[in-house]
Amino acid sequence: MAEMEVERTIERLFARAPELGDADVFAERVQRRLDRGWAARRALIGVAGLVGGVIGASQLIMSNLFSRAEAASSESARVLTSGVRQLAPQAEWLLNGPAGIEAIWLAAGLAVVAMGLVLTRIIEEI
């Protein structure tokens, strides 16, 4: 046999591997290892998320955020009340218009449907 022919014959013989009797058992073993690895990874991500959450929450508490938020919210409430007072005449006009409260509910409903469509699209993209 020529050198090239020998090489090709040996390559062919290597490619002609016998099918082992326990091929399915072997495949199941690999599958189990993959599943175990996947479960371990998910658990690790969960634990990491929990630890991150606890650290984040403790940081919020330590930074005295709630008392600051309370102070900010009383200030915001004051601003909001004055804003509503200025808007009240226009709101009355809207409510007393030809469509009235139904138009507002319709607009809100359409907004919810639009949000739903956007969310569905985002989920599909992911």
């Binding site: 490619a15 591997a17 016998p18 099918e19 082992l20 091929a23 399915d24 072997f26 495949a27 199941e28 690999v30 599958q31 993959l34 599943d35 996947w38």
Partner: peptide
């Protein structure tokens, strides 16, 4: 992972 399992079934012996 099931699809990969099929690949293992096909090529495991080799």
């Amino acid at each position: 992972r099931q699809a990969f399992g099929e690949l293992v079934r096909r090529h495991g012996s080799a």
